[in-house]
């Protein structure tokens, strides 16, 4: 599976949570470093999950309707990870040790969710709202991919512009 393009950049993370191909991330849990990293992820996850919980309480979706709150939570979280990873991981850029664990793994990982997305889809199907279920499943995937691509592209362009003389 490792055949393909770009062997030079192989030390740049693909998995934003943790990518053991990146030496600094592989060493992240060595010895005493482990506990601050896990604590940062834990705290970030709590913050992100509360924001998601708050969003679904503020904008509840009656059963059988399109789960708009969770749709926007997931799309927004994907846009934000696109910005974050460009800033802290790509192009040789780095950040203080706990920034990615707290903001990326914790806050954004806890904010967005895959399991409720899947459960809402099955709930719509069981209510025989197949059209809404399919629109939600495909729409979230398309929205998430569009958001992460657009946000990463805009952030890279902005960095290139400021880097140019």
């Amino acid at each position: 599976m490792t055949s393909g393009a770009d062997p030079v950049g192989v030390a740049e993370a693909i998995d934003p949570d943790v990518d053991l191909h990146v030496p600094a991330q592989r060493a992240e849990t060595a010895g005493g470093h482990k506990w601050p990293v896990l604590a940062a992820i834990s705290a970030g996850g709590a913050v992100g999950a509360c924001a998601r919980h708050g969003a679904t309480l503020l904008w509840p979706s009656p059963e059988g309707t399109f789960p708009w709150a969770l749709f926007w939570v997931n799309v927004a979280g994907c846009a934000l990870i696109g910005v974050l990873m460009v800033l802290v991981s790509e192009g040789g850029r780095t950040a203080p040790a706990l920034v990615r664990p707290f903001l990326g793994v914790g806050v954004l990982g806890g904010f967005t969710t895959f399991s409720t997305y899947a459960l809402d889809f099955s709930g719509l199907l069981e209510r025989e709202e197949a059209g809404i279920a399919l629109a939600y499943a495909v729409g979230t995937l398309a929205g998430a991919m569009g958001a992460v691509w657009l946000a990463a592209s805009v952030t890279r362009a902005a960095l290139n512009r400021t880097a140019a003389p």
Binding site: L108, G109, G110
Partner: peptide, 24 residues
């Protein structure tokens, strides 16, 4: 909402999918 919500993720999934596509 808490455990499964934070255990699973859409943001990580979307960025890694983007990176796979961009890297060929």
């Amino acid at each position: 909402t808490g455990l499964c919500g934070a255990l699973t993720t859409y943001s990580t999934f979307s960025y890694e999918t983007l990176r796979l596509a961009e890297r060929g």
